[in-house]
Nucleic acid binder design. Sequence first.
DNA 1: TCCGCGTTCGAACGGACGTTTGAAGAGATT
DNA 2: AATCTCTTCAAACGTCCGTTCGAACGCGGA
Lengths: 222, 222
Amino acid sequence: MSALAAEPSAATHEDADRDAATKALVLTTAERLFAERGLRCVSVRDITAEAGVNLASVNYHFGSKDTLVFEIFRRRAAELSRDRARMLHEAQARHGGQAPVREILAALMAPPLLWSRPGHPRRIAMQFIIRARGEGGEAVREAVGKDVSHLRPFVAALIAARPDLPPEEVHWRLHFVLGMVHNNRVAEFERLHVLSEGLTRDGDTEALLNRMLDFAEAGFLR
Amino acid sequence: MSALAAEPSAATHEDADRDAATKALVLTTAERLFAERGLRCVSVRDITAEAGVNLASVNYHFGSKDTLVFEIFRRRAAELSRDRARMLHEAQARHGGQAPVREILAALMAPPLLWSRPGHPRRIAMQFIIRARGEGGEAVREAVGKDVSHLRPFVAALIAARPDLPPEEVHWRLHFVLGMVHNNRVAEFERLHVLSEGLTRDGDTEALLNRMLDFAEAGFLR
DNA sequence: TCCGCGTTCGAACGGACGTTTGAAGAGATT
DNA sequence: AATCTCTTCAAACGTCCGTTCGAACGCGGA
Protein backbone atom coordinates (compact mmCIF):
# COMPACT_ATOMS: atom_id res chain seq x y z
CA MET A 1 0.00 0.00 0.00
CA SER A 2 3.09 2.20 0.22
CA ALA A 3 3.60 4.55 -2.71
CA LEU A 4 0.89 4.82 -5.32
CA ALA A 5 1.32 6.25 -8.80
CA ALA A 6 0.46 9.93 -8.66
CA GLU A 7 -2.90 10.99 -10.05
CA PRO A 8 -2.12 12.33 -13.50
CA SER A 9 -2.32 16.11 -13.83
CA ALA A 10 -5.88 16.29 -12.48
CA ALA A 11 -6.62 19.19 -14.86
CA THR A 12 -7.92 22.36 -13.25
CA HIS A 13 -10.74 21.00 -11.15
CA GLU A 14 -11.82 17.43 -11.63
CA ASP A 15 -12.41 16.85 -15.34
CA ALA A 16 -9.72 14.43 -16.39
CA ASP A 17 -10.84 14.15 -20.00
CA ARG A 18 -8.82 16.95 -21.48
CA ASP A 19 -5.33 15.59 -21.10
CA ALA A 20 -6.05 11.91 -20.59
CA ALA A 21 -8.09 10.56 -23.47
CA THR A 22 -6.87 7.17 -22.36
CA LYS A 23 -8.45 7.49 -18.93
CA ALA A 24 -11.84 8.43 -20.34
CA LEU A 25 -11.60 5.66 -22.92
CA VAL A 26 -10.86 3.11 -20.22
CA LEU A 27 -13.78 4.38 -18.15
CA THR A 28 -16.38 4.06 -20.89
CA THR A 29 -15.02 0.81 -22.27
CA ALA A 30 -14.83 -0.78 -18.84
CA GLU A 31 -18.34 0.34 -17.99
CA ARG A 32 -19.71 -1.18 -21.18
CA LEU A 33 -17.88 -4.50 -20.81
CA PHE A 34 -18.78 -4.77 -17.13
CA ALA A 35 -22.42 -4.10 -17.97
CA GLU A 36 -22.42 -6.72 -20.73
CA ARG A 37 -20.52 -9.59 -19.12
CA GLY A 38 -20.32 -8.89 -15.40
CA LEU A 39 -17.49 -7.65 -13.24
CA ARG A 40 -15.66 -10.93 -12.65
CA CYS A 41 -15.88 -12.08 -16.27
CA VAL A 42 -14.09 -9.01 -17.62
CA SER A 43 -10.35 -8.90 -17.05
CA VAL A 44 -8.12 -5.87 -17.15
CA ARG A 45 -6.74 -7.35 -20.35
CA ASP A 46 -10.20 -7.46 -21.91
CA ILE A 47 -10.75 -3.79 -21.12
CA THR A 48 -7.41 -2.51 -22.37
CA ALA A 49 -7.54 -4.67 -25.49
CA GLU A 50 -11.06 -3.48 -26.36
CA ALA A 51 -10.10 0.13 -25.70
CA GLY A 52 -6.89 -0.19 -27.67
CA VAL A 53 -4.71 1.06 -24.84
CA ASN A 54 -1.85 -0.46 -22.92
CA LEU A 55 -2.44 -3.09 -20.27
CA ALA A 56 -0.85 -1.00 -17.55
CA SER A 57 -3.21 1.93 -18.16
CA VAL A 58 -5.78 0.74 -15.66
CA ASN A 59 -3.32 0.49 -12.79
CA TYR A 60 -1.63 3.74 -13.78
CA HIS A 61 -4.80 5.82 -13.93
CA PHE A 62 -6.92 4.10 -11.30
CA GLY A 63 -4.53 2.21 -9.06
CA SER A 64 -6.34 -1.10 -9.28
CA LYS A 65 -9.22 -2.86 -10.98
CA ASP A 66 -11.37 -2.58 -7.86
CA THR A 67 -10.79 1.15 -7.71
CA LEU A 68 -11.82 1.44 -11.35
CA VAL A 69 -15.06 -0.39 -10.62
CA PHE A 70 -15.73 1.76 -7.59
CA GLU A 71 -14.96 4.93 -9.55
CA ILE A 72 -17.47 4.10 -12.26
CA PHE A 73 -20.05 3.05 -9.69
CA ARG A 74 -19.62 6.17 -7.58
CA ARG A 75 -20.22 8.48 -10.53
CA ARG A 76 -23.22 6.64 -11.88
CA ALA A 77 -24.86 6.05 -8.51
CA ALA A 78 -24.54 9.74 -7.70
CA GLU A 79 -26.04 10.59 -11.06
CA LEU A 80 -29.00 8.31 -10.44
CA SER A 81 -29.53 9.72 -6.97
CA ARG A 82 -29.52 13.25 -8.40
CA ASP A 83 -32.12 12.23 -10.96
CA ARG A 84 -34.36 10.80 -8.26
CA ALA A 85 -33.87 13.79 -5.98
CA ARG A 86 -34.76 16.16 -8.80
CA MET A 87 -37.99 14.30 -9.54
CA LEU A 88 -38.91 14.33 -5.86
CA HIS A 89 -38.19 18.02 -5.64
CA GLU A 90 -40.32 18.74 -8.70
CA ALA A 91 -43.18 16.72 -7.28
CA GLN A 92 -42.99 18.58 -3.99
CA ALA A 93 -42.87 21.92 -5.83
CA ARG A 94 -45.98 20.95 -7.79
CA HIS A 95 -47.90 20.29 -4.57
CA GLY A 96 -46.66 23.11 -2.40
CA GLY A 97 -44.13 21.04 -0.50
CA GLN A 98 -46.28 18.01 0.28
CA ALA A 99 -46.13 15.51 -2.56
CA PRO A 100 -48.63 12.62 -2.55
CA VAL A 101 -47.42 9.07 -2.03
CA ARG A 102 -47.77 8.10 -5.66
CA GLU A 103 -45.47 10.86 -6.88
CA ILE A 104 -42.89 10.15 -4.21
CA LEU A 105 -42.82 6.54 -5.31
CA ALA A 106 -42.66 7.64 -8.93
CA ALA A 107 -39.56 9.70 -8.20
CA LEU A 108 -38.01 6.57 -6.73
CA MET A 109 -39.06 4.17 -9.47
CA ALA A 110 -39.00 6.15 -12.68
CA PRO A 111 -35.29 7.02 -13.08
CA PRO A 112 -33.93 3.46 -13.03
CA LEU A 113 -36.76 2.35 -15.28
CA LEU A 114 -36.24 5.16 -17.76
CA TRP A 115 -32.49 4.66 -17.79
CA SER A 116 -33.05 1.02 -18.76
CA ARG A 117 -35.01 1.90 -21.89
CA PRO A 118 -33.34 1.02 -25.20
CA GLY A 119 -31.73 4.09 -26.66
CA HIS A 120 -31.39 5.91 -23.37
CA PRO A 121 -27.90 7.39 -22.92
CA ARG A 122 -27.68 5.88 -19.47
CA ARG A 123 -28.85 2.40 -20.42
CA ILE A 124 -25.38 0.87 -20.13
CA ALA A 125 -24.75 2.81 -16.93
CA MET A 126 -27.94 1.37 -15.43
CA GLN A 127 -26.95 -2.16 -16.34
CA PHE A 128 -23.56 -1.52 -14.79
CA ILE A 129 -25.11 -0.25 -11.56
CA ILE A 130 -27.25 -3.36 -11.28
CA ARG A 131 -24.24 -5.61 -11.93
CA ALA A 132 -22.06 -3.72 -9.48
CA ARG A 133 -24.71 -3.90 -6.76
CA GLY A 134 -24.66 -7.68 -6.92
CA GLU A 135 -21.15 -8.56 -8.01
CA GLY A 136 -19.16 -5.65 -6.62
CA GLY A 137 -16.31 -6.13 -4.20
CA GLU A 138 -15.96 -4.86 -0.69
CA ALA A 139 -15.73 -1.20 -1.65
CA VAL A 140 -18.89 -1.19 -3.76
CA ARG A 141 -20.83 -3.26 -1.25
CA GLU A 142 -19.90 -0.88 1.54
CA ALA A 143 -20.84 2.12 -0.58
CA VAL A 144 -24.22 0.60 -1.36
CA GLY A 145 -24.89 -0.58 2.16
CA LYS A 146 -23.75 2.39 4.18
CA ASP A 147 -24.69 5.30 1.94
CA VAL A 148 -28.38 5.66 2.43
CA SER A 149 -28.35 9.44 2.63
CA HIS A 150 -30.03 9.86 -0.75
CA LEU A 151 -32.99 7.86 0.55
CA ARG A 152 -33.61 10.07 3.57
CA PRO A 153 -35.57 12.75 1.69
CA PHE A 154 -37.86 10.00 0.43
CA VAL A 155 -38.38 8.62 3.92
CA ALA A 156 -39.16 12.11 5.20
CA ALA A 157 -41.58 12.78 2.36
CA LEU A 158 -43.36 9.48 2.88
CA ILE A 159 -43.69 10.05 6.61
CA ALA A 160 -45.08 13.49 5.94
CA ALA A 161 -47.52 12.06 3.42
CA ARG A 162 -48.66 9.38 5.85
CA PRO A 163 -48.28 10.94 9.32
CA ASP A 164 -50.77 8.41 10.68
CA LEU A 165 -48.35 5.52 10.08
CA PRO A 166 -45.59 4.61 12.52
CA PRO A 167 -42.22 5.55 10.95
CA GLU A 168 -41.20 1.94 11.40
CA GLU A 169 -43.99 0.86 9.10
CA VAL A 170 -42.99 3.43 6.49
CA HIS A 171 -39.45 2.09 6.46
CA TRP A 172 -40.63 -1.47 5.94
CA ARG A 173 -42.90 -0.48 3.09
CA LEU A 174 -40.07 1.46 1.47
CA HIS A 175 -38.01 -1.71 1.77
CA PHE A 176 -40.69 -3.60 -0.15
CA VAL A 177 -40.82 -0.94 -2.84
CA LEU A 178 -37.06 -1.03 -3.27
CA GLY A 179 -37.32 -4.78 -3.65
CA MET A 180 -39.75 -4.29 -6.52
CA VAL A 181 -37.41 -1.80 -8.16
CA HIS A 182 -34.25 -3.86 -7.78
CA ASN A 183 -35.96 -6.88 -9.26
CA ASN A 184 -36.25 -5.23 -12.65
CA ARG A 185 -33.30 -7.02 -14.19
CA VAL A 186 -33.07 -8.45 -17.68
CA ALA A 187 -32.92 -12.02 -16.40
CA GLU A 188 -36.04 -11.54 -14.28
CA PHE A 189 -38.01 -10.11 -17.18
CA GLU A 190 -37.04 -13.06 -19.36
CA ARG A 191 -38.12 -15.41 -16.59
CA LEU A 192 -41.45 -13.63 -16.36
CA HIS A 193 -41.95 -13.89 -20.12
CA VAL A 194 -41.25 -17.60 -20.04
CA LEU A 195 -43.72 -18.01 -17.20
CA SER A 196 -46.44 -15.98 -18.87
CA GLU A 197 -45.73 -17.63 -22.21
CA GLY A 198 -45.29 -14.32 -23.98
CA LEU A 199 -48.31 -12.71 -22.38
CA THR A 200 -46.16 -10.06 -20.74
CA ARG A 201 -44.22 -8.04 -23.23
CA ASP A 202 -41.73 -5.46 -22.18
CA GLY A 203 -40.79 -2.34 -24.09
CA ASP A 204 -43.64 -0.27 -22.77
CA THR A 205 -41.81 1.33 -19.89
CA GLU A 206 -44.59 3.79 -19.22
CA ALA A 207 -47.10 1.00 -18.73
CA LEU A 208 -44.76 -0.96 -16.47
CA LEU A 209 -44.13 2.12 -14.35
CA ASN A 210 -47.85 2.66 -13.96
CA ARG A 211 -48.38 -0.98 -13.02
CA MET A 212 -45.65 -0.76 -10.41
CA LEU A 213 -47.05 2.48 -9.07
CA ASP A 214 -50.55 1.03 -8.86
CA PHE A 215 -49.25 -1.93 -6.91
CA ALA A 216 -46.93 -0.02 -4.59
CA GLU A 217 -49.38 2.80 -4.00
CA ALA A 218 -52.06 0.33 -2.98
CA GLY A 219 -49.65 -1.27 -0.53
CA PHE A 220 -48.66 2.10 0.84
CA LEU A 221 -52.08 3.69 1.13
CA ARG A 222 -53.47 0.69 2.97
CA MET B 1 -14.32 -33.49 -22.57
CA SER B 2 -13.81 -37.14 -23.57
CA ALA B 3 -14.04 -39.68 -20.75
CA LEU B 4 -15.38 -38.60 -17.40
CA ALA B 5 -14.74 -40.41 -14.13
CA ALA B 6 -17.56 -42.85 -13.56
CA GLU B 7 -20.14 -41.97 -10.95
CA PRO B 8 -19.06 -43.90 -7.88
CA SER B 9 -21.18 -46.91 -7.01
CA ALA B 10 -24.46 -44.97 -7.01
CA ALA B 11 -25.74 -47.27 -4.27
CA THR B 12 -28.99 -49.02 -4.99
CA HIS B 13 -31.11 -46.09 -6.16
CA GLU B 14 -29.77 -42.59 -5.76
CA ASP B 15 -28.69 -42.12 -2.18
CA ALA B 16 -24.93 -41.73 -2.33
CA ASP B 17 -24.42 -41.25 1.38
CA ARG B 18 -23.96 -44.85 2.39
CA ASP B 19 -20.69 -45.63 0.67
CA ALA B 20 -19.33 -42.15 0.11
CA ALA B 21 -19.09 -40.23 3.34
CA THR B 22 -16.63 -38.01 1.52
CA LYS B 23 -19.21 -36.96 -1.05
CA ALA B 24 -21.76 -36.00 1.57
CA LEU B 25 -19.12 -34.19 3.58
CA VAL B 26 -18.07 -32.19 0.54
CA LEU B 27 -21.69 -31.33 -0.20
CA THR B 28 -22.50 -29.94 3.22
CA THR B 29 -19.15 -28.19 3.67
CA ALA B 30 -19.33 -26.59 0.24
CA GLU B 31 -22.89 -25.44 0.85
CA ARG B 32 -21.92 -23.81 4.12
CA LEU B 33 -18.83 -22.06 2.75
CA PHE B 34 -20.65 -20.91 -0.37
CA ALA B 35 -23.44 -19.52 1.77
CA GLU B 36 -21.00 -17.69 4.04
CA ARG B 37 -18.54 -16.22 1.55
CA GLY B 38 -20.08 -16.45 -1.90
CA LEU B 39 -19.44 -18.83 -4.77
CA ARG B 40 -16.45 -17.10 -6.32
CA CYS B 41 -14.69 -16.45 -3.04
CA VAL B 42 -14.59 -20.12 -2.07
CA SER B 43 -12.05 -22.25 -3.92
CA VAL B 44 -12.06 -26.00 -4.26
CA ARG B 45 -9.06 -25.94 -1.97
CA ASP B 46 -11.04 -24.08 0.70
CA ILE B 47 -13.79 -26.69 0.57
CA THR B 48 -11.57 -29.75 0.68
CA ALA B 49 -9.35 -28.28 3.39
CA GLU B 50 -12.35 -27.40 5.57
CA ALA B 51 -13.89 -30.80 5.01
CA GLY B 52 -10.61 -32.59 5.65
CA VAL B 53 -10.69 -34.50 2.39
CA ASN B 54 -8.40 -34.66 -0.57
CA LEU B 55 -8.30 -31.85 -3.10
CA ALA B 56 -9.25 -34.13 -5.97
CA SER B 57 -12.44 -35.28 -4.25
CA VAL B 58 -14.56 -32.56 -5.78
CA ASN B 59 -13.59 -33.41 -9.33
CA TYR B 60 -13.82 -37.12 -8.67
CA HIS B 61 -17.30 -37.06 -7.18
CA PHE B 62 -18.85 -34.15 -9.05
CA GLY B 63 -16.78 -33.68 -12.19
CA SER B 64 -16.20 -29.96 -11.68
CA LYS B 65 -16.77 -27.12 -9.27
CA ASP B 66 -19.63 -25.78 -11.38
CA THR B 67 -21.35 -29.15 -11.31
CA LEU B 68 -20.99 -29.24 -7.53
CA VAL B 69 -22.64 -25.84 -7.24
CA PHE B 70 -25.42 -26.87 -9.57
CA GLU B 71 -25.94 -30.12 -7.67
CA ILE B 72 -26.39 -28.34 -4.35
CA PHE B 73 -28.64 -25.75 -5.91
CA ARG B 74 -30.83 -28.28 -7.67
CA ARG B 75 -31.52 -30.18 -4.46
CA ARG B 76 -32.23 -27.15 -2.34
CA ALA B 77 -34.33 -25.35 -4.92
CA ALA B 78 -36.47 -28.46 -5.38
CA GLU B 79 -36.86 -28.71 -1.63
CA LEU B 80 -38.00 -25.09 -1.40
CA SER B 81 -40.44 -25.54 -4.25
CA ARG B 82 -41.90 -28.58 -2.52
CA ASP B 83 -42.35 -26.59 0.67
CA ARG B 84 -44.16 -23.85 -1.18
CA ALA B 85 -46.31 -26.28 -3.12
CA ARG B 86 -47.30 -28.06 0.08
CA MET B 87 -48.38 -24.78 1.70
CA LEU B 88 -50.40 -23.87 -1.37
CA HIS B 89 -52.04 -27.27 -1.39
CA GLU B 90 -52.94 -27.02 2.28
CA ALA B 91 -54.43 -23.57 1.76
CA GLN B 92 -56.51 -24.82 -1.13
CA ALA B 93 -57.64 -27.81 0.91
CA ARG B 94 -58.72 -25.48 3.70
CA HIS B 95 -60.91 -23.49 1.34
CA GLY B 96 -62.37 -26.25 -0.79
CA GLY B 97 -60.00 -25.77 -3.69
CA GLN B 98 -60.17 -21.99 -3.98
CA ALA B 99 -57.61 -20.35 -1.71
CA PRO B 100 -57.83 -16.59 -1.14
CA VAL B 101 -55.12 -14.29 -2.47
CA ARG B 102 -53.53 -13.75 0.90
CA GLU B 103 -52.95 -17.43 1.54
CA ILE B 104 -51.60 -18.01 -1.95
CA LEU B 105 -49.09 -15.23 -1.38
CA ALA B 106 -48.30 -16.64 2.05
CA ALA B 107 -47.43 -19.99 0.50
CA LEU B 108 -45.03 -18.13 -1.79
CA MET B 109 -43.47 -15.91 0.85
CA ALA B 110 -43.41 -17.94 4.04
CA PRO B 111 -41.02 -20.80 3.17
CA PRO B 112 -38.00 -18.65 2.21
CA LEU B 113 -38.67 -16.41 5.20
CA LEU B 114 -38.99 -19.29 7.63
CA TRP B 115 -35.90 -20.99 6.26
CA SER B 116 -33.93 -17.82 6.93
CA ARG B 117 -34.75 -17.79 10.63
CA PRO B 118 -31.84 -18.40 13.00
CA GLY B 119 -31.85 -22.00 14.12
CA HIS B 120 -33.82 -23.30 11.15
CA PRO B 121 -32.21 -26.43 9.68
CA ARG B 122 -32.44 -24.90 6.22
CA ARG B 123 -30.99 -21.52 7.13
CA ILE B 124 -27.65 -22.18 5.43
CA ALA B 125 -29.43 -23.74 2.47
CA MET B 126 -31.52 -20.61 2.05
CA GLN B 127 -28.48 -18.37 2.13
CA PHE B 128 -26.87 -20.62 -0.46
CA ILE B 129 -29.88 -20.42 -2.75
CA ILE B 130 -29.83 -16.64 -2.59
CA ARG B 131 -26.10 -16.56 -3.32
CA ALA B 132 -26.40 -19.04 -6.17
CA ARG B 133 -29.25 -17.09 -7.76
CA GLY B 134 -27.03 -14.05 -8.06
CA GLU B 135 -23.54 -15.41 -8.41
CA GLY B 136 -24.17 -18.75 -10.06
CA GLY B 137 -22.65 -19.68 -13.38
CA GLU B 138 -24.35 -20.49 -16.63
CA ALA B 139 -25.91 -23.73 -15.40
CA VAL B 140 -27.51 -22.23 -12.32
CA ARG B 141 -28.69 -19.17 -14.16
CA GLU B 142 -30.33 -21.31 -16.82
CA ALA B 143 -31.96 -23.49 -14.19
CA VAL B 144 -33.34 -20.44 -12.40
CA GLY B 145 -34.43 -18.69 -15.56
CA LYS B 146 -35.99 -21.52 -17.49
CA ASP B 147 -37.51 -23.63 -14.76
CA VAL B 148 -40.64 -21.78 -13.85
CA SER B 149 -42.84 -24.84 -13.61
CA HIS B 150 -43.11 -24.64 -9.83
CA LEU B 151 -44.65 -21.18 -10.18
CA ARG B 152 -47.45 -22.27 -12.49
CA PRO B 153 -49.74 -23.57 -9.74
CA PHE B 154 -49.44 -20.19 -8.07
CA VAL B 155 -50.30 -18.36 -11.27
CA ALA B 156 -53.29 -20.60 -11.79
CA ALA B 157 -54.45 -20.12 -8.19
CA LEU B 158 -54.09 -16.35 -8.41
CA ILE B 159 -55.99 -16.18 -11.69
CA ALA B 160 -58.74 -18.29 -10.17
CA ALA B 161 -58.84 -16.03 -7.13
CA ARG B 162 -59.04 -12.91 -9.28
CA PRO B 163 -60.87 -13.98 -12.46
CA ASP B 164 -61.77 -10.36 -13.13
CA LEU B 165 -58.12 -9.44 -13.75
CA PRO B 166 -56.43 -9.98 -17.12
CA PRO B 167 -53.91 -12.83 -16.76
CA GLU B 168 -51.26 -10.43 -17.96
CA GLU B 169 -51.89 -8.24 -14.94
CA VAL B 170 -51.68 -11.21 -12.60
CA HIS B 171 -48.28 -12.13 -14.01
CA TRP B 172 -46.97 -8.62 -13.51
CA ARG B 173 -48.18 -8.47 -9.93
CA LEU B 174 -46.61 -11.83 -9.23
CA HIS B 175 -43.39 -10.38 -10.61
CA PHE B 176 -43.63 -7.55 -8.10
CA VAL B 177 -44.27 -9.97 -5.24
CA LEU B 178 -41.26 -12.07 -6.20
CA GLY B 179 -39.20 -8.89 -6.19
CA MET B 180 -40.25 -8.27 -2.62
CA VAL B 181 -39.34 -11.83 -1.65
CA HIS B 182 -35.96 -11.90 -3.38
CA ASN B 183 -34.98 -8.63 -1.73
CA ASN B 184 -34.92 -10.21 1.70
CA ARG B 185 -31.16 -10.61 1.88
CA VAL B 186 -28.92 -9.97 4.85
CA ALA B 187 -27.26 -6.99 3.19
CA GLU B 188 -30.60 -5.37 2.40
CA PHE B 189 -31.83 -5.76 5.96
CA GLU B 190 -28.67 -4.16 7.28
CA ARG B 191 -29.12 -1.31 4.83
CA LEU B 192 -32.67 -0.84 6.03
CA HIS B 193 -31.56 -0.79 9.63
CA VAL B 194 -28.97 1.86 8.89
CA LEU B 195 -31.59 3.92 7.08
CA SER B 196 -34.16 3.63 9.84
CA GLU B 197 -31.49 4.15 12.48
CA GLY B 198 -32.41 1.02 14.35
CA LEU B 199 -36.13 1.61 14.15
CA THR B 200 -36.62 -1.57 12.17
CA ARG B 201 -35.42 -4.62 14.03
CA ASP B 202 -35.42 -8.03 12.48
CA GLY B 203 -35.83 -11.29 14.28
CA ASP B 204 -39.60 -11.23 14.30
CA THR B 205 -40.18 -13.24 11.17
CA GLU B 206 -43.87 -13.60 11.83
CA ALA B 207 -44.34 -9.84 11.96
CA LEU B 208 -42.29 -9.32 8.80
CA LEU B 209 -44.32 -11.93 6.96
CA ASN B 210 -47.52 -10.21 8.00
CA ARG B 211 -46.19 -6.85 6.89
CA MET B 212 -45.22 -8.25 3.52
CA LEU B 213 -48.58 -9.95 3.17
CA ASP B 214 -50.42 -6.76 4.05
CA PHE B 215 -48.48 -4.85 1.44
CA ALA B 216 -48.67 -7.46 -1.31
CA GLU B 217 -52.32 -8.30 -0.67
CA ALA B 218 -53.26 -4.65 -0.95
CA GLY B 219 -51.45 -4.42 -4.26
CA PHE B 220 -53.11 -7.59 -5.49
CA LEU B 221 -56.64 -6.90 -4.35
CA ARG B 222 -56.63 -3.45 -5.88
C1' DT C 1 19.28 22.30 -26.94
C1' DC C 2 18.54 20.05 -22.94
C1' DC C 3 15.84 18.81 -19.09
C1' DG C 4 11.82 17.31 -16.46
C1' DC C 5 7.54 15.31 -16.09
C1' DG C 6 3.53 12.89 -17.26
C1' DT C 7 2.33 9.12 -20.06
C1' DT C 8 2.69 4.91 -22.72
C1' DC C 9 4.79 0.70 -23.72
C1' DG C 10 6.31 -4.29 -23.78
C1' DA C 11 7.50 -7.68 -20.70
C1' DA C 12 7.49 -10.08 -16.96
C1' DC C 13 6.37 -11.45 -11.97
C1' DG C 14 3.99 -14.04 -8.55
C1' DG C 15 0.11 -16.18 -7.22
C1' DA C 16 -4.43 -18.40 -7.24
C1' DC C 17 -7.23 -21.37 -9.41
C1' DG C 18 -9.65 -25.68 -11.52
C1' DT C 19 -8.28 -29.73 -13.17
C1' DT C 20 -5.50 -33.95 -14.25
C1' DT C 21 -2.45 -37.75 -13.39
C1' DG C 22 -0.61 -41.97 -11.81
C1' DA C 23 0.26 -44.46 -7.92
C1' DA C 24 -1.32 -46.30 -3.55
C1' DG C 25 -4.98 -48.05 -0.48
C1' DA C 26 -9.17 -50.76 0.79
C1' DG C 27 -12.61 -54.26 0.35
C1' DA C 28 -15.19 -57.51 -1.88
C1' DT C 29 -15.23 -61.38 -5.30
C1' DT C 30 -13.29 -65.40 -7.40
C1' DA D 1 -3.92 -65.62 -2.48
C1' DA D 2 -4.93 -63.13 -6.70
C1' DT D 3 -7.74 -59.94 -9.12
C1' DC D 4 -10.75 -56.34 -9.88
C1' DT D 5 -13.12 -52.01 -8.76
C1' DC D 6 -13.88 -48.02 -6.34
C1' DT D 7 -11.77 -44.50 -3.72
C1' DT D 8 -8.13 -41.64 -1.82
C1' DC D 9 -3.86 -39.41 -2.10
C1' DA D 10 0.21 -36.21 -3.12
C1' DA D 11 1.94 -33.78 -6.67
C1' DA D 12 1.92 -31.40 -10.36
C1' DC D 13 0.10 -29.03 -14.85
C1' DG D 14 -1.42 -25.30 -17.50
C1' DT D 15 -3.87 -21.13 -17.51
C1' DC D 16 -5.52 -16.78 -16.39
C1' DC D 17 -5.23 -12.85 -13.68
C1' DG D 18 -3.92 -8.29 -11.31
C1' DT D 19 -0.08 -5.92 -10.70
C1' DT D 20 4.70 -4.09 -11.17
C1' DC D 21 8.93 -2.63 -13.50
C1' DG D 22 12.10 -0.09 -16.21
C1' DA D 23 12.79 1.80 -20.45
C1' DA D 24 11.09 4.68 -24.13
C1' DC D 25 8.29 8.51 -25.71
C1' DG D 26 6.51 13.25 -26.33
C1' DC D 27 6.21 17.74 -25.19
C1' DG D 28 6.41 22.21 -22.76
C1' DG D 29 9.60 25.22 -20.25
C1' DA D 30 14.35 26.82 -18.94
